[in-house]
Amino acid sequence: MEWMAWTLPTSLFFAGIGTLLLGMTAWQFVTPTLSRQGFLPIATTRGDRLFIGLLSSGWLHLLWLGFTDQVLWMISIVCVVWMLVLMKWG
């Protein structure tokens, strides 16, 4: 694994994503998702909302890095809140 040049933050990041995916899979087996309409303009399933949340969080982080010199964890908190809102009401 040396060639993959792991660092602690990136390992934590991928562990987080992996846990999220496993958790979502388990959740799907327990209570299968239904496609429904929330505040997003399209009907989505839980998985769709997770994907939209992750993609938009990636973009929000990039915008933050590109336009401000503030520390990164501020936008990370905003993204966590955004993802929770999206999963619940999206």
Binding site: M4, A5, F13, F14, L65
Partner: peptide, 26 residues
């Protein structure tokens, strides 16, 4: 995943590398 790992480091080869955080992105 390797690309993500590379993107947060100043890296020449796997044994010569320094963590730089989000510096490259900025």
């Amino acid at each position: 995943m390797t690309v993500v790992n590379y993107s947060v480091q100043d890296i020449f080869d796997p044994s010569t590398r320094f963590f730089v955080g989000t510096e490259w992105y900025r």
